[in-house]
């Protein structure tokens, strides 16, 4: 009887040691997985930043009047296709350039007309550029936006080729 109890006690001890070992292994791998997940998220963010930098420095999209880049030419943005830019900068991303209109244009408008003025401004801001709508447009969408993308935005200057003026805009890059 005493011998049986000792054997049971012995096996319980072995079981506990094995459990501790398994828990230790799970914890170590868990930390590793967390680290890998964080690294993956960092890599996506870095990649989004690279795509944004690539768009801002690409000779295919920038106005050569500003040799250091960072000034997007609206006519080049209109002409560029998704397939072309994917083959230059890598696949799996979406970009949108949106020119911002100066809201102070509605400042002097009477209060009852201001809502309409701002709505018109928003409407003008939303016109997507195509061969037909160019140059009366303010949004360029390059490649399809997909669910689950992470987004990264930077302010950009957009050169309006037809008017010879410069507008302020926002470049948003989405990455799968």
């Amino acid at each position: 009887m005493k011998g049986q109890a000792a054997i049971t006690e012995y096996f319980v001890l072995i079981f506990l040691i094995a459990m501790i070992a398994v828990i230790a292994v799970i914890m170590v791998f868990g930390f590793q997985m967390l680290g890998t997940g964080a690294e993956k998220a960092n890599a996506r963010e870095r990649n989004a930043l690279f795509i944004a930098e690539g768009i801002l420095s690409s000779g295919a999209l920038n106005s050569p009047q500003f040799p250091k880049g960072s000034v997007l030419d609206d006519s080049r943005l209109t002409a560029a296709s998704c397939a072309d830019l994917w083959s230059l900068l890598g696949e799996g991303w979406h970009a949108e350039v949106r020119v911002l209109r100066d809201r102070s244009a509605c400042d002097g408008v009477q209060a009852w007309l201001k809502t309409k003025c701002l709505a018109d401004l928003r409407k003008a801001e939303g016109a997507v550029c195509t061969d037909q709508s160019y140059p009366s447009c303010s949004v360029w969408r390059i490649c399809e936006k997909k669910a689950g993308m992470i987004f990264f935005s930077v302010p950009v200057s957009v050169y309006r080729k037809m008017n010879g003026t410069m507008d302020l805009g926002v470049l948003t890059v989405g990455l799968e």
Binding site: A60, L61, S75, R76, A79, A80, Y134, P135, K161, M162
Partner: peptide, 25 residues
């Protein structure tokens, strides 16, 4: 060669667009 081909294609389309719009406008 790959970058030239792609950039030239964008530039061709852009050249056509700009010349058409300049006439239209």
């Amino acid at each position: 060669s790959k970058e030239v081909t792609v950039s030239a294609r964008i530039m061709m389309d852009r050249t056509r667009l700009v010349s058409q719009k300049m006439v239209a406008l």
